[in-house]
């Protein structure tokens, strides 16, 4: 063959007409059972119930409520703590201190990041400070904080600020720097003012990083707070959840200790899965910046 591209096997050409109906299921709603199985909250609730059951069985088998109370005893202590107002007031006290520390930490992080974004020396300063202080556990600063700020909540707020500041500043700064150059040019192109540029381009553009910083900062602050209250709560005027755990342990009310821990866990879950998840769903996930 001289023409090597010629068709080797002769076949007739054909053209089909496409069917418009009669090909079974195209789209049909899922059954109730399939929908329930897809609902993550339900699956997780089942896991929780199963864990509670194991707890109950093990504690009963152990039979030593001073070491490991049953789930039902813990639940009862939790209920009593709620009704008597002890747990709510301890929670309120903890939250109040936490919010103060968190907010001051955020404001300082904002200032640091603004300085770091505006100047190179500021950026160097922030990077050096974060490298130094981010690995330093806040609780290690508590003894010093008590000397500097006295025995009130001042010391605890100081360590909370330390817990929040670095992770938020680090993430926000990294977020600002990773804002796409195209968005920056778009912002400049439409003649945004300096403040408009920051609030309408930089902050939303860096929002996935900022949100991560807020979440990490919150988790650090929460752990630091409970630990600080647990160790120094008596001196700090008492009243927080950590203090509640410490006090009930001293009174050998072990189910109440468990109830206090349960409260800490529940609050953590609520903030992570309700507050932050809602923010995430309304912002970065909706915008397709995070899947």
């Amino acid at each position: 063959m001289s023409d090597t591209r010629a068709i080797q096997h002769e076949r007739p050409e054909f053209v089909c007409t496409i069917q418009t109906s009669g090909y079974g299921v195209v789209e049909k709603p899922l059954s109730t059972w399939e929908k329930l199985a897809d609902f993550g909250g339900l699956r997780k609730t089942l896991i929780l119930l199963f864990l509670a059951l194991i707890w109950e069985v093990y504690a009963r088998w152990l039979g030593n409520p001073l070491v490991f109370p049953t789930f039902t005893a813990t639940a009862l202590a939790f209920w009593n703590g709620l009704v008597s107002g002890e747990i709510p007031s301890a929670t309120f006290h903890s939250m109040k201190v936490l919010f103060q520390g968190y907010l001051i930490g955020l404001v300082l992080a904002g200032l640091f990041t603004a300085f770091a974004s505006a100047t190179r020396i500021g950026s160097d300063l922030l990077e050096t400070l974060t490298a130094m202080f981010n690995p330093l556990p806040s609780i290690a600063l508590l003894p010093l904080a008590m000397i500097w700020f006295g025995l009130g909540t001042g010391g605890i707020i100081f360590v909370l600020i330390h817990a929040v500041l670095w992770s938020v500043a680090l993430n926000t700064h990294a977020g600002f720097r990773s804002v796409s150059p195209t968005w920056r040019m778009v912002g400049q192109n439409y003649g945004l003012s300096r403040i408009g540029y920051v609030t309408r381009i930089l902050i939303p553009g860096a929002f996935p990083s900022i949100l991560t910083g807020l979440k990490i900062g919150w988790a650090f602050a929460w752990r630091t707070l409970i630990a600080a209250e647990l160790v120094f709560g008596a001196n700090a005027g008492g009243g927080g959840l950590g203090w509640y755990i410490f006090e009930t342990k001293n009174a050998l009310e072990i189910p109440s200790v468990f109830a206090g821990l349960l409260t800490v866990i529940l609050l953590g879950i609520v903030v992570e899965n309700v507050v932050f998840l809602t923010i995430e769903k309304r912002t970065v996930r909706r915008w397709g910046m995070q899947t």
């Binding site: 796409s180 968005w183 778009v186 439409y190 003649g191 553009g205 912002t283 915008w287 397709g288 910046m289």
Partner: peptide, 17 residues
């Protein structure tokens, strides 16, 4: 300035938020 508007090659020129 807004008297000269750029249209870029990149798809990410739209603000995703």
């Amino acid at each position: 300035g807004p008297d000269r508007i750029l249209v870029f090659q990149e798809f990410d020129q739209l603000l995703p938020w």
